[in-house]
Design a binder for these strands. Structure first.
Lengths: 131, 131
DNA sequence: TTATTAATGTTATATTATTACATAATGTTA
DNA sequence: TAACATTATGTAATAATATAACATTAATAA
């Protein structure tokens, strides 16, 4: 279902780096880290990020301008994303909840607008930070 | 329930401008427009925006880095926001749906995290652009 | 093979947002 | 009201995020 089988060199470098990270990464921090692998300019990173988002390999956390690897094998999730964000430690976790995604994917209000995508960000304190 | 009764001059200028707009406004376009009213620097706008977001008078559309006036009288909504965004004309509407907000405000998943805030952005084509 | 599409490399620049510091206004409390 | 704390202001500089424009190369399709 992904539009592209093969990732290009730059896309693969950026994806590898994001997948290894336990936290959301910002474009310029990715840039800094992949310079040794030949990526020199912001645009090279942004292009890779755009493509990776498009094919659902990563997601952008809009409120943080940061990127995380997709943890769902289900490839439709790039059109239906939900995250929980700890406002203290900034830990971000992808929410995988079938009921939630069904509810939101089918959501329709009086506007008559048919949604083909959504992004939901929950904020709070994670277990650790709640203590 | 709002933390502040009285808006300061800069806050009021910025709020007035946003309330008059039918579309989300970006910080620098606000800046440009309120220069005649004595606001000279980005920081003056950002400070006003921060405060207005904090007290729920406006919301930030994260995926667009833009700001809209709150259309709900209900003041708790700044902690529970939902928008529908047309990807063609960029029209943004605040979604006011009690069922949705109840569902999301009470949402809890296995993470054990207690959420105190969420932001949801739906994307699609509005009635006009669907044609 | 030619045409088309997608990706790359590079430079420059646009856009969004914050730091730092000095000052003034406002609110609180003794 | 004086002293203090808090909040807002003004200003300059700069950081952080993202895109435009253009030349070139690689991959894919017809």
């Amino acid at each position: 279902m992904q539009k592209q089988e093969h990732l290009t060199k730059n896309q693969q470098i950026v994806l590898d780096f994001i997948e290894k990270s336990s936290e959301p990464l910002k474009a310029y921090s990715i840039l800094f880290s992949v310079k040794k692998q030949g990526i020199k300019a912001p645009l090279q990173v942004y292009r890779a990020l755009d493509k990776l988002v498009e094919i659902g390999k990563i997601h952008k956390i809009e409120s943080r301008n940061a990127f995380v690897a997709c943890k769902n094998s289900n490839c439709q999730v790039s059109k239906a994303t939900a995250f929980s964000i700890c406002e203290s430690c900034e830990d971000v976790t992808e929410v995988s909840n079938l009921k939630l995604s069904k509810y939101l994917s089918n959501f329709a209000d009086k506007s008559g607008m048919k949604y083909n995508k959504y992004n939901l960000e929950f904020f709070g304190l994670c277990k650790n930070c709640k203590k």
